[in-house]
Simulated scan of single mutants.
Amino acid sequence: MQKKIYLAGPDVFLSNGKEILGRKADMTRAAGFIPLCPGDLAPPPVETKNARGLAISGINEGMMRQADAVLANLTPFRGLAADVGTSFELGFMCALGKAVYAYTNVPDDHFKRCAEYYKGDLTQSADGRVRGPDGLSLEDFDMADNLMLDGGIKSRGGAFVIGNAPADRIYTDLTAFAECLRLFAERHGD
């Protein structure tokens, strides 16, 4: 039986999101798996924006329950870290005991991105932690994103592929996605 992979990420927000998800779905099928993409299923007609959001959330959770694995795009989105919805989806799949794989198109680790946010205005406090001028400590674990994301992936035997896409293709370059899919196929293919 073919394994189903839920393709998580902020791709749905892109102006060419359907095209990007279509390319990812084609690559997933070519690797011998069934892609499950957010946005593939239309929510039923509802009366409010809130009800529409809840319907979409329910559809996505249903797809994740059907999936055998998640392949998540954790490229920083609208800030320093991965898209919050994608982070939820990765955690949801971890909690369900599914296989979790991820990639990012940004080579800088979480600590470096946070240090850049503070423009290098960092100090080491008495407790040995690096802190920004607001007093908040920075995670410094040589991880691509928050330790819970990296940890969730690695502790379950998944892979977190670090890509280096050109700035103008940060959300559309599929090189790291292809490598992540290859690793999944190598470990979980039939």
Rank of each mutant, 00 (worst) to 15 (best):
T48I: 05
K18F: 03
L14C: 07
D40Y: 05
D11S: 08
L41S: 08
G17H: 03
P38S: 07
G22C: 07
Y6H: 09
A51N: 09
L14F: 07
V12W: 09
S15V: 08
S57L: 14
A55D: 12
K24L: 08
G39P: 12
K49N: 14
D11M: 10
I56V: 15
A30S: 15
K18D: 15
V46H: 06
G22N: 08
L41N: 04
I34Q: 15
K18N: 12
L36M: 15
D40K: 05
I5W: 04
P38F: 02
S15Y: 04
L7C: 05
P43A: 10
P43E: 10
T28H: 00
D40A: 13
K18G: 10
F13S: 12
K18R: 14
R52Q: 14
R52D: 06
A31M: 09
G53A: 13
G17V: 06
E47R: 11
R23Y: 04
F33P: 00
S15H: 08
Y6P: 00
I5M: 08
L36I: 06
G53C: 12
E47G: 09
M27K: 04
G32N: 10
N16R: 06
D11H: 01
Y6F: 15
T48D: 13
T48R: 11
F33L: 03
G53W: 09
P35E: 09
G22Y: 07
K24Y: 01
A31W: 03
L21K: 11
P35K: 02
G39D: 12
E19D: 14
F33H: 05
G32Q: 09
F33N: 01
R29K: 15
L36S: 09
I56A: 06
L41K: 09
M27L: 15
I5N: 02
R29F: 02
P45M: 11
G39S: 10
L21E: 11
D40S: 14
D40R: 03
K18H: 12
V12T: 13
I34R: 10
G32A: 13
